[in-house]
């Protein structure tokens, strides 16, 4: 089953190959595969050829296992998770190595500029790849969390539409905040 190949066509008509098991990381692709429409190539009109390889790389790493990195990162938070009574040191070490390796991979994988990040987020949203969507959304959040409103407007191409009076009031509220707590 793992040898079954699937072909994906980007918006600019380039074809890419992916294993079926990897493609199942995407809910959208999974539904297409299960729907039996595997004849030929799956067209993805919303994903361009510079983003699609990135998506495939993520799917390959995560297989059909949606959002696995998330689960590891939040281990112990899961309320119904039972804490293992028997501690296996070897298993713990292997787990640590696995988590570290995955973290390192994610760090390298996520090393690109903002436009790629947003395009990848859009692709993850379109293809319903929850793990990738969480990863990109959290990355975007960590990038903007320390910014000023002006930088945000520039970033998201937004014009402030407050009247000068409203703006003054907003800035005062902001100042009130700054007076007591310093910026991050």
């Amino acid at each position: 089953m793992s040898s079954t190949k699937i072909f994906l066509k980007s918006s600019d008509d380039k074809t890419f190959e992916i294993d079926e098991t990897a493609a199942r990381a995407s809910e959208t692709l999974k539904n297409i595969i299960d729907g039996g429409c595997l004849d030929g190539v799956i067209p993805l009109p919303n994903v361009s050829s510079n983003i699609l390889p990135k998506v495939i790389e993520y799917c390959k790493k995560h297989g059909g296992d949606n959002g696995s990195s998330k689960k590891i990162a939040n281990g112990g938070v899961d309320k119904d998770k039972e804490i293992l009574p028997d501690y296996d040191e070897e298993e713990d070490k292997r787990e640590k190595v696995r988590v570290d390796e995955l973290k390192k991979w994610e760090e390298e994988y996520m090393d690109f500029d903002q436009q790629v990040l947003y395009d990848l987020m859009l692709a993850a949203n379109y293809l319903h790849i929850k793990g990738l969507l969480d990863l990109t959304v959290e990355k975007a959040a960590s990038m903007i969390r320390g910014r000023t409103p002006d930088q945000i407007r520039e970033n998201f191409n937004i014009n402030s539409d407050f009247t000068p009076e409203e703006e003054e009031e907003m800035i005062l509220i902001e100042d009130e905040w700054d007076d007591e707590w310093a910026f991050d």
Binding site: I144, I158, N159, W177
Partner: peptide
Amino acid sequence: KSLLRFRCVCK
């Protein structure tokens, strides 16, 4: 903290 700051980005 970030959210309070970003309220004044636009309406």
